[in-house]
Design a protein around this nucleic acid. Structure first.
Lengths: 193, 193, 193, 193
DNA sequence: TATGAATGAGTTTTCATTCAT
DNA sequence: TATGAATGAAAACTCATTCAT
């Protein structure tokens, strides 16, 4: 046998890793973190239990990696927003980008919300709340201040509730929940208004 | 010494039961169903593991009892609503009653939402969705139909999202989330409008 | 209230004791020693769990007492046999007495065989094999010796097997197993022959 | 190092499985089903408790496998008997085969009788009484009918008692009970006679 | 004497993780 | 790198026994 090149190995590793991550995503999202056993994930991925630990340090680590593919993308996006400065257009971009990512990957997002709500598992991962997240919060508060004056805080909380409600309802029911319609109503209420 | 009377035992049992339920509520709400072990709950309640099974048949049963104190109250309320017929006033009553119960017992409601989102544990308990729940859904749909015409469905989904978003945000942060303000905005948007 | 006399207490104690023993007999015979819980027995007897320990030292003790009511009666009978000397008539008496006691109290005997077969529980109780038991074995061996000569040992083993087989089949199926017919065949084979 | 091949694993598994089954057989036969704890069996087999569940689904399953090695062999034999038609020769074959299997594997048979007598555990396993068992019962009844006329039923019950008595006495005392002699007497009484 | 609440050691079972190959 | 057997700690649950009243 001709020895594989380093690159070939690298490619294989990544394929395997993706395979495992994909299996883990489905099992976690369907059964929750605790009920999802390493065995089930391994079986679904078509690899041995032992191999899992070649790619991931632990079950927690597996979850961490899955969530970070969401978190990182989000942070990156927020960074972009923050750099450009925040205005009505940016606000709408936030909404549209959220809709797009939700639709592109409902399973990941379902997992994200599932974990976000079960504080225990999640908190560890999110201590590390990004700097752009902080800045983003400031900016959006300023945006509401400009738009609604002294009602800003109330409106911001309301928007947060509406927005998270929509996301939650969608990930729990991606087939039937009319995300696009909701997006329109959201824009109507918080952008055009 | 003569033994305790039946009444004395009854009182003791109820005290203990409450004690255990209270401990269970906290541990479940803080750690989720799976991470909450009977041992932890027993320790928190200050009783032995074994005693738990004197009062509740199983861990599931413990959860069931906790959730039913929420579900039953809700069903009862819905029955009242359904009986009276549904109109603007009833709609507002639903909102106000929800706010009131959320504030009265945020921990129970936190547990309720936690479980509702982790389908697995919950489904079993709620197969038994009450008849009034069904009727209530019909009525509220009719209400939206009357109010918004062909936009009814969209608006209903939107309302559902907003409402659940508010409840969710409140139970996750009962100290800081301004529930009363949200109630006002909700009424303004879906009742007075 | 007038204080009860010592005698009255004694009578009550014995009634209670009988009540408990009877309940224990049924539960043990129906569910086996290990599956029979003290709770079930107490419930069946209509007394509290605690009271059981007022009358019997332990679950083992309860079993011991039950078995001894069988064992003692048997030993007493054997003593009688041994005293009178062993002959054809005595042999038939053994058979008839066995049939009579089996029919009079199949539950006790069922328990007896159940326990006899599960060596563990039983051995402790029966270390104390009575002197008359020993003598009886000698005598019956002599009886077979006289009757069958050098075939005695074989015939004795055969008789033992037949006899225990009959008893076993009867206690497992007291309603349908024709004990009287078996008795006749037994006598025909080992007495008249 | 390269991993073991499938065949190597297969061999290992079978060795281990046999090891565990053997340990289980001894512990069950010595202590009965309930007193035999998985811990004890594991210790005797020299493996961890956890490993037991890699090979058997549950304690019940362990018992089931042990008993089925008896039951299946028996059913197979009966099928053969049924096919060939039942006559004096077949009857003798039944006896001889029983003697042979009893001697070949007294521990298994001891377990079998132990469980058969404790109805509770057993019933579940044996609901599945084989069709050949049913046919066999018919045939043997017919055989007795032909041989003894109107006494058939009595004689059949007697034979059942004798036969089960012999088997029982042997498995409880395989070292000392003269099985071969009993076989001869049995044949003499129920075949040649 | 009588009650049943309470305990704690023991049971079966699960599963993330390790390890020999 | 890859396998799956093996471990061990922890889970839910049971039950004989004790104890305060």
């Amino acid at each position: 046998m001709s020895p594989r090149t380093k690159e070939q190995f690298e490619v294989m590793r990544n394929q395997r890793k993706t395979l495992i991550l994909d299996a883990a995503l489905h099992v976690f999202a369907e059964e929750g973190y605790h009920s999802a056993s390493i065995s089930k994930i391994a079986k679904r991925a078509g690899v041995s239990k032992g191999l899992m630990y070649n790619y991931f340090e632990s079950k927690q680590d597996l979850l961490r990696v899955l969530l970070h593919s969401i978190i990182d993308e989000q942070n990156e996006f927020l960074e972009g927003i923050v750099k450009k400065g925040f205005n009505e257009k940016a606000f709408q971009e936030v909404i549209d980008h959220t809709v797009k990512t939700l639709k592109a990957d409902p399973k990941h997002w379902k997992l994200y919300f599932l974990m976000a709500i079960q504080t225990e598992v999640f908190e560890v991962l999110l201590k590390e709340q990004s700097a752009s997240m902080q800045e983003y919060k400031m900016m959006i508060y300023q945006y509401f201040k400009d738009k609604y004056g002294e009602d800003a805080e109330k409106k911001l909380h309301y928007f947060t509730a509406v927005f998270s409600g929509i996301r939650m309802n969608f990930v729990m029911n991606p087939e039937t929940f009319p995300l696009d319609d909701m997006r329109d109503l959201l824009v109507e209420q918080f952008v055009k208004e």
